[in-house]
Amino acid sequence: MARGLIKNRDNKGYLFILPYFLAMLTFQLYPIFYTFYLSMLKPVTLIKMEFVGFDNYARLLTNPLFYTAIGNTWFIWLMNYVPQLIFALLLAVILTNPKIRARETFRTLFFLPNLVTAASIGVLFAVFLDFKNGAFNHILIELGIFSEPYEWIQDKMAMRMAVSLIQWWQWFGYTMIIFMAGLSAISGDLYEAANIDGASSSQVFFKVTLPLLKPTMLYVMVTSLIGGLQIFDIPRVITNGRGGPDNALTTMVLYLYNQGFKNFNLGYASALAYALFVMIIIFSAISFKVIGKRD
């Protein structure tokens, strides 16, 4: 009898997952398809839209600002991802060594910036970098590096680097934790065998550790890419929404936001959203191919 009870219950599983799928269809998938439809519309008057096919996409591809936004987004992402990866790997190796003291404290401290509101962090760094009152200029002057305050907010390259630096600061601890988990999943036997064979520690790192960390690398790469290409909060807050100086901080999503909700050109902004999506798909697929392949 008990068997019968248990056998017949399997289809009740649908009931348990039903609410999720209803919500997913309503709040996620429907808006996504609807956005695609919107990307084919163009405003003719304030309230009237007209179907224009792929016009918005064509316009997008001929707009130099679109390429500037792509360039900015990639630059900011790469400039934070590469150092983030190096620091995270190095720290993960150090902090998984049981001989190091206060490992948990360090781990928590490095992780601390990660979950703090990005909008607030953006404001914080914007005031640090301020021309007249910023702490950064004060420190540089007091250390004798600069003789007078420098207008960071007006320097295109400095501002991009600042955003990358903030991103690095927020994410290296997170990535380190992911790598630590990856490292602890590697069996100790392998290290022992390498030691017996007389491998040096750098040999062990490059021949044993790194290849075995591949799945973790892939995870970090893809999640960082998806998140990084959508960067919005910090560039938006630091530039007060302008994306300046000279659009140096106009990232793809900031461009999308300004087109959609400042200029109210929903069709064009929707096309931008799809362009971003296609880019994420392509580069995720490339990551899977390059890192994920077995040698």
Binding site: I17, Y30, Y34, T35, L256, G260, S270, A273, Y274, F277
Partner: peptide, 26 residues
Amino acid sequence: KEIFFWVILGTMMIPQQLGLIGYYDL
């Protein structure tokens, strides 16, 4: 079951902003 679960995992790969404008208009 597996297909449904893969659909959920698949939605994790979609950028959040993709449906934002459609959702706003809705």
